[in-house]
Every structure is written in C-alpha cells, then in structure tokens.
C-alpha cells in the first residue's frame, strides 16, 4: 500500500513533493509544494509554517540528542535550530510560524520503557520549542502506529496517514 497522494511513493519525481528522509530537512515557499516525511515510527516530524508568506520547513528527527555527525537533523537538540534557519531561508518567520508535530510512536513492545525512543523524541521536541518560547499548534504524537505526514505549503494543513486511517491537523 502506497500512502502518498500521487501514488508514486518516495521515489516520486513529482517536482511538487519534497521528501525529508530520516534525519533530513526540507523547506519551500511555493504554495503548490508539499513537504513529506514517509514511514515515521519512533521518529518525529516537526513542521513550521508561516501563514503570512506561506513558507514552510519540516524536519524528520531521529533521536532526541547525541554526538554530531550523520544527516543534518538526526538529533532534535542540534537539528531544531536548523529547522528554524531553513524556514528563515525561504522567507518565513519562526515568531509567526505554526508548529505541528507527528510521530514518536512506540512501535515495538519489547523496546518500551527505557528504550522508548519515540516518547523521548516527542518530549525533546516539546522541550526545545518551549525553550525557544514557541509551542505546538497541533500534534499527533505517541501511540503505537506508524505515520506518513504531508504538509501543504499553501495552507499549512498537515495530513497524517497510517495503516488505520487518515487525519488532518
């Protein structure tokens, strides 16, 4: 089952889609553009959308914190500022931005507890936003289901798809 609207999946060459792979960041000021994170489990997607200029950025965070190296937003702690910088780079303002988050699931029962990376990722995103004087406008965090998320740059809607259904934030 392929969840993306155009039915062509992550390998799509659709120029209107920008895909943030694991630990990656995408941004756009094109209102016809859609930013996508596929197959989030314990990972968290954090989107920032500026309604005035209709510019957006989205990060696909993998871990709450850690040593440097690897893809640009592998860690929430050092990747958060890169998300804000990416929004500014396409003309957006973090002060005006609506932030939305999805993911942070606990996919495997045996990894719950101390190894619950999903919960720790969600907490890290919320803490980092609070530390910057910002807050989530909406979120779909936790649970035990995987998610694919799509942010429409034109209207800021975050479409969340899972094996059990679809919702919009």
């Amino acid at each position: 089952m392929t969840l993306i609207a155009d039915g062509r999946g992550p390998a799509s060459t659709n120029p209107a889609l920008s895909v943030a792979g694991i630990g990656e960041l995408v941004s756009s000021a094109d209102p016809d553009h859609t930013l996508v994170c596929y197959g989030l489990g314990s990972c968290v997607a954090l989107s920032a959308w500026d309604p005035r200029v209709r510019a957006a950025a989205m990060a696909h965070f993998m871990l709450p914190s850690g040593a440097g190296g690897g893809p640009p937003v592998k860690f929430v702690d050092e990747g958060f500022d890169r998300l804000l910088a990416a929004l500014r780079a396409v003309g957006g303002s973090s002060a005006r931005a609506e932030f939305k988050a999805a993911g942070g699931a606990s996919m495997l029962a045996v990894m719950a507890g101390a190894l619950d990376i999903g919960r720790r990722n969600a907490q890290a995103v919320e803490a980092r936003l609070a530390g910057a004087g910002l807050r989530l406008a909406a979120s779909d965090l936790g649970g035990s289901a995987g998610r694919t998320v799509q942010l429409a740059v034109g209207n800021g809607r975050l479409l969340i798809k899972s094996v059990s259904g679809t919702k919009t934030l």
């Binding site: 596929y38 489990g41 993998m62 040593a67 690897g70 045996v110 990376i117 995987g146 998610r147 094996v163």
Partner: peptide, 26 residues
C-alpha cells in the same frame, strides 16, 4: 526476546530499531 508480529509501514518498523543503533555511529 519474545518475537513480535507487526503489520506496519516499513519505515516505521525500521526507524525504531535503527535509532537504537545509530546514536553514536553513522
């Protein structure tokens, strides 16, 4: 561990286990 059967998105299953392995390595 006790095996767990799961029907889910490929990325969602794999990101949890990969996150546990790549904290200090690429």
């Amino acid at each position: 561990t006790v095996p767990q059967a799961i029907v889910e998105l490929t990325g969602a299953i794999l990101d949890a286990v990969l996150a546990d392995l790549v904290a200090d390595v690429d």
